[in-house]
Nucleic acid binder design. Structure first.
Lengths: 249, 249
DNA sequence: TGAAATTTTGCTGTTTTCTGCATTTTAATA
DNA sequence: TATTAAAATGCAGAAAACAGCAAAATTTCA
């Protein structure tokens, strides 16, 4: 096993479980604990994880327990959230996915908005709960600890029973050639179901994810109607997407 | 369990409850009180909490003006929550309803508990999310703004597909003659489904609701197995329920 | 390709950290 | 004041981190 490969595995494990133990990793990849320690050291210096006595923790773990720590590029996400919130009008029926941009949108909703929201994202639902005029429909299934949304066939089946006006998706990668891509297969299943169900699809993403790619394909560009980033609409980075027929905001 | 992980848990508990006891923490994370003390010491030095005799306080607690009745009732619920949490063992499959007592139970769960929780209560789900070894299954349906739980036929149908070991219900009124009663018809439907599905039913309530009555009947006393209040088990108020064959804790 | 240079890895012995226990000291309470 | 509970202190065993070194693997480059 190559060093790079091994370190990728470690990062994956940390992201999956939020914590890893040096001795567990040592037996899992069959190298000495010293090597693991050196890997953790390097990955810590690169900011991929937090090395502690006996193993390592993910940054997400810190975010959960010390919520004061601000989320990555929050300012951009707030701008995106505010743009997205303006699309929602009274009486609409809206489906939303997970991710921090969607949560920012939820936080930007006008207090007296009267609409119906369907979601499997617990943090988003918590935000919707605070709005007196919003009806919330919870999509049930097994809760994923990584993404904080419900995942599985039950969730997909439930999504298919709706015909929402709008669907908001936080996306992890978008690219002219490969369309929308993501890293987690289960999450992709949910996103695909949401896209199919909805009359209009709105994608939210910070600009650094534009023109990037992930291993699992979600859908082609022609499935999405609106793309929202923190950039002004006439930014050159967005031009190709406008040309591809997507409304850029 | 890693030291950092444990300290994060302690900070989390302090922020939740505003106060923690060393010996409670000691059993929750299963280390000696010495270790807890040393952790509290460090966390105090880092400014994460305020160490006091017997435990620690949150900074927020300092600002709070003197204790009202609210705090008192909060303490009762905490005691109930801790009693209830002790019933849950590794590997169990647990169904929980809504209400503040159930949320207190969720907050009192040991860190490393490995069990499966099914619930439609959003605040309870948020608590379960923080536990790395707990699997959470979300019961979907329309979210009720009053109770913060999902209500409706979908939820009921989903509950009926499970056969949990235990079911925890916060109750609003209990009475020897009329059994468990409540005020909201929709909530009662859910509670009835939960009771029917479960092998054992545990009811949580503060003592002031004992021997009171509400307009809608949930079930007779013989449906419930365990009753948990903040009172000691030999309190005269509870005697009739013990006599009725209910395990009082 | 093949030899040299560089990196990576595992091992040894040492140092540090962590944790629990026993003892003493301090604080809280009736 | 007496009684009890918790804090501080010192100590010891176990585990982890560290530093240095030599062997092995990988890369570089003629």
């Amino acid at each position: 096993m190559l060093k790079r490969e091994r370190q990728a595995y470690i990062v994956h494990q940390v992201n999956l479980h939020n914590k890893v133990l040096s001795n567990t990793l040592s037996t899992q990849v069959d190298v000495s604990e010293d090597t693991i320690r050196r890997d953790l050291q390097e990955l810590d210096e690169k900011g991929k994880l937090i090395k502690v006595h006996g193993g390592a923790l993910s940054h997400a773990f810190n975010d959960i327990t010390y919520p004061s720590k601000k989320i990555y590029s929050q300012d951009s996400k707030r701008i995106i959230g505010e743009k997205a919130a303006r699309l929602i009008k009274d009486g609409m029926f809206v489906l939303t996915g997970g991710g921090t941009t969607v949560i920012e949108m939820a936080r930007s909703l006008p207090v007296n908005l009267s609409a119906t929201f369907v979601s499997g994202s617990i943090p988003a639902i918590v935000e919707y709960m605070h709005h007196p005029m919003i009806e919330v429909i919870v999509i049930g299934d097994k809760l994923s600890k990584n993404s904080n949304i419900t995942l599985g066939t039950n969730a997909i089946a439930k999504i298919n029973t709706f015909k929402p006006d709008l669907c908001f998706l936080g996306i992890n990668a978008i690219d002219l050639q490969h369309g929308i891509t993501d890293s987690d297969w289960d999450v992709v299943q949910i996103k695909q179901a949401m896209i199919e169900a909805s009359q209009k699809v709105v994608c939210l993403t910070i600009s650094e994810k534009i023109n990037s790619m992930q291993p699992v394909k979600v859908c082609d560009l022609d499935k999405i109607d609106i793309l929202i980033t923190e950039l002004p609409t006439d930014h050159p980075l967005l031009q190709p997407y406008t040309n591809a027929g997507i409304t850029v905001m």
